[in-house]
């Protein structure tokens, strides 16, 4: 179309699907005990599933593959977030601790994207190339 309505539709569908998938995983987490196990579901692939399904339907499997490569870096940064969030929460309280950890996630993602734009698997094969800003 070229008037931006396709993009708006894509974002709106991803938002709706993402919200619903997150609710589904949150319900599962709420029902589960012990609560430490329920914490596992805070890092469930809910947003990823919703987004990848919509992406496949609208733009094809090639974009799903590219998204999954980006997700590898985001997930590695997520682990760093979890490891650093606990001491930060205890030291600075909920909001400041969580926000500081989020800043660490952002920095880790930026560094990871610069170093391994093709994802973590490319590091192994040495096939990393400069990040592409367009699909």
């Amino acid at each position: 179309m070229g008037d931006g309505s396709d993009e708006i539709l894509e974002v709106a569908l991803k938002a709706l699907a993402g919200g619903l998938f997150v609710l589904a995983f949150a319900a599962l987490a709420e029902m589960l005990t012990p609560k430490r196990l329920a914490g596992v579901f805070c890092a469930a692939p809910s947003v990823a599933l919703a987004s990848l399904i919509v992406t496949a339907g609208l733009t094809g499997v090639g974009d799903v593959l590219a998204s999954a490569r980006g997700m590898q870096i985001g997930a590695a940064a997520f682990i760093l977030y979890c490891l650093i969030a606990v001491p930060l929460l205890r030291r600075w309280g909920t909001w400041w601790g969580a926000l500081a950890a989020l800043a660490v996630w952002g920095a880790a993602v930026a560094v990871g994207y610069a170093l391994a734009p093709q994802g973590l698997l490319a590091l192994r094969s040495g096939a990393a190339s400069p990040p592409a800003l367009v699909p």
């Binding site: 990823a48 733009t59 590219a66 998204s67 490569r69 985001g74 990040p131 592409a132």
Partner: peptide, 10 residues
């Protein structure tokens, strides 16, 4: 691009 968008899936 989808690769940059993929970062936010996690």
């Amino acid at each position: 691009g989808p690769r940059a968008g993929g970062l936010f899936l996690a």
